[in-house]
């Protein structure tokens, strides 16, 4: 089997196309943060109001000066806590064991998220 063939270019093109279609066009986020648990929007917080919020006794999230982080969580791997602060859309904070996602929605799809969430 050859390492590279001409047809591979089509697959590379497909990857590039998928990238172009899914890469965020804007990095500007709204001024709110959504906490989604089990697919439901459980909290909407203002990014510019400093707060510490407990999510169902399994996680404490902290909002400060336009950024948000998971402060405490009860799961063993602590991936979300080690991720630190996020202040823009892009990569949301994800906790698979607790099925929680903390996401700053992009300005234009703030409303869509509320509906699908």
């Amino acid at each position: 089997m050859k390492f590279f063939r001409f047809s591979d270019l089509f697959i590379i093109l497909l990857v590039v196309l998928a990238l172009v279609l899914t890469l965020p066009t804007t990095r500007a986020g709204g001024s709110v943060v959504h906490v989604i648990q089990d697919g439901l929007l459980v909290r909407t917080l203002d990014l510019w109001v400093d707060a510490r919020v407990e999510i169902g006794e399994i996680m404490v999230i902290q909002v400060e000066k336009g950024a948000v982080r998971a402060l405490v969580t009860d799961c063993p791997d602590q991936v979300c806590v080690r991720m630190g602060w996020i202040s823009s859309p892009g990569i949301p904070i994800i906790c698979v064991p607790n099925r929680i996602m903390i996401v700053i929605p992009r300005e234009k799809d703030s409303e869509i998220d509320v509906i699908t969430g």
Binding site: A18, D38, P92, V96
Partner: peptide, 17 residues
């Protein structure tokens, strides 16, 4: 099934790279 939200696909391009 796990996060149950389409907003998870925000990380899709990074996964692709």
């Amino acid at each position: 099934f796990i996060i149950r939200n389409v907003a998870l696909f925000l990380i899709y391009p990074y996964f692709l790279i």
